[in-house]
Amino acid sequence: MNVTAEPRAPAGEDPAAAWRHPAPVAADRDAAYLSLRHARKVYQTRTGDVEAVGMANLDIAAGEFVSILGPSGCGKSTLLSMVGGLETVTEGEIWIEGAQVTGPRRDFGYIFQDPTLLPWKSVLDNVLFPIRTQKRPVADYEAEAHRLLERVGLGEFKAKRPRELSGGMRQRVALCRGLINDPRLMLMDEPFSALDAISRDDMNLALVRLWDSYHKTALFVTHSIREAVFLADRVLVMTARPSRIVADLRLPFARPRDVTVQDTPEFNRICAWLRDQIQAGYGRAAPGTGG
């Protein structure tokens, strides 16, 4: 683990000391659900090689909700795509349950930045789209689709078409679609960043409520510090140029998680510490640059 960032406060007062995740034990990938070993992604462009993700080392246990936090262009989305098998790995390896990732798997669930719903299908049929595509028996999943839609408050909208829904509602449908095939790993690529602030809070809450009962392993990419901390059990901070994971925090907040956790001093201290880490990654700590 490249935890290189120096805490800016003196060591004794480092507020993050209590939560900092212990460095992963190398060669322990059989114990972890998901392991990245020196995973690297390099794009070849006309002006030379561009390193999108550099030497990521990571172990994630089954059931962990991990936020990957970082500024735009730090390679966090690329990292997620590599784990999901949508991008090849230039160097290094990614292992899931002892098998190397070579492509997308049926037991993954995805949510992208856009809801990417099929406009000609009803909400219910959109949720069932992965089931039909993966040729699973639809009848076995219909009840679950209804249940998921009820849970995110779309019970009355099952027969509607996506264009009749608001942006936030559409993203809820995408969330249900991501969960319908009971995935082992949920991959979420800035799923709420296109929403307005109010819908976004709403979605965060919906997601947290879902995770009260669904204990799925999840990777959640975001550039919002508060969102990352509110949703996750663990936060990874990535920086750009060079693209590195510079911090790895285990959060002390229990589940089921309450909205008011965001108002606690601890929550805010963690957010402040994470902002410092991101700003340190820019090579400066001017206020307001940590977005």
Binding site: R105, Y110, T133
Partner: peptide, 25 residues
């Protein structure tokens, strides 16, 4: 939409499935 095609790929849909269920409609 490119994301829709990405979704199909993520769901391990075949080219034919992608054509029938996404591209053609």
């Amino acid at each position: 939409e490119r994301d829709l095609l990405r979704l199909c790929r993520a769901l391990t849909a075949s080219n034919w499935q992608t054509f029938v269920s996404v591209r053609l409609p």
